[in-house]
Every structure is written in structure tokens, then in C-alpha cells.
Amino acid sequence: MGTRQPEGPPPPPTVQRLRIRYAKRGRLRFVSHRDFARAFERALRRSGVPIAFSAGFSPHPKISYVGAAPTGSASEAEYLEIGLQTETDPEQVRAALDMALPEGLDILEVLPAGPGGLPERIEASRWRIELPGFRTQALAAALQEFLARESVIVERVTKKGLRLLDARAAVVSARAVEGEGCAILDLVVRQVSPAVRPDDVLTALGAVAGLDGSLTSRSMRLAQGRLDVTTGVLTDPLGPDRAAAARDGALGET
């Protein structure tokens, strides 16, 4: 069995790796990660981007995804990396993929991969969670209760059954901001396993302070990155790649 080999030559190797930031917007926030992956692979084919494939009986396109936002959440900061079999201008790839994807799945930035891995540059997410009909002061009070605790255990129904997770421990910062007809929760959450999602924090707020916004809330991931513990700011995970590209560009011009 182990001796079976696909016929024909092996696929061309990867000669270029590109890192991509994309957004999930509007009604397409209901796209699941699997839905996105399918749409992205088709967009690659349709746009003619020379994606590299793995070897074997069922070759797969070289795509690595980094932790996707949950179904129902919008995002301005989703990341993935692709391998190409032909060197291609990143901006051309951005435009071609953006064109091939439906409106609402938008390719924001494409950069050649610099040194170091992408997943290591992502530690935490900043979320903006709209709570229509809630007052900012009520949210602020609930947050105070919540942040005063050391841990708040919540339940989540998953495909594997009920799971318990600590919604408090992962929260780095949480503050209430005034919005139009809604309170806005500005939330920074560390990426832990199992992941703590905006919904879990809202469930926790319901548990500790009786503020239940989980049914009507709308969440959007604003940023992901490495956490600066002193300032609470997230550093752009594509920063090093952008710097490397600028350096190469400057070298190319001289």
C-alpha cells in the first residue's frame, strides 16, 4: 500500500510565499471558516493566481489559515499565507483575488513573507461589540463587576457537547464606549485554547451582572497581533513583512 505513487512528475515547488490580510464584512459575516476556505480556493482558480500544490494523490493548494473569526462575527483583520509556484507581484495578486471574491470578502493587503512565522505574531484580538439598546453606563458597570473577578466560567455548546471555559482569564482589557443607539464594548482578548469569543464574554457579563446582550449583539474583530503588555496595544502582525518589503524595494531602486 505504501508503495503506491501518483503518476507523472511532482508538482512545481513553492517559490514565493505571500501573507494576506482580509476582511469579512456586512452580510458575509455569516460566512463560516469552511465557507471562506472554499470561496478562497475558487477565487484562486478563477483569478489565475499561480498557487502551488502539495504532492500526493489529492493535491491541495498551499494555503495556511491563522485562527478565523467565528461565524457571525465581522472582521477587519483576518490573516492567511499562500505559496506560489511563480514569482508574482503582490499588489497584482491582491487586486486579482479581491476581484474574484464576492463583495464583503475583501482582500486588504498582500505582502511577501519576511523572516519568521505569522502565527507567532498573533497573541490577542481587539473586538468591537455593538450592543443595540444598551446604555453605556450599564455596560460600564457590568464590566466593572466582571473585571473584578479572577475567573468567570461559562458554558458553550459545541459540536462535541458542552464545554466549560474561563471567559475572564483571557480578557486583557474591556471598556464601554458610547455608540449611536447602542453601547459599544471595546474588548482585547488573549488567544487561548479553547478560544474565548465575544459571545463568551457577553455570556459572562450576563452571569455576573445580569446584562444579557448575546442575542442582539454585533461583533467585529478590529485587529490581531502581538500584545504590548505595558500599553495594551496590538502590534501589526504584517509589520515585519512590510518593513522587509520596503527595504527590498529601496534596494531595488538604487
Partner: peptide
């Protein structure tokens, strides 16, 4: 009716089946 529908979608299975936006 999307604004009214949108508020219901987080509460159901497979919301993507109702949003359209197909290529």
C-alpha cells in the same frame, strides 16, 4: 427584509444559507 432577518441569523443553524451573495 434583511434588517429584520439579520437579527435572527445569529440564533439559527447555517445562517449563510439565507444571506445570498453567491458568485
Amino acid at each position: 427584509v434583511f434588517p429584520q432577518l439579520e437579527a435572527l441569523l445569529p440564533r439559527i443553524n447555517k445562517p449563510i444559507q439565507y444571506v445570498g451573495g453567491e458568485l
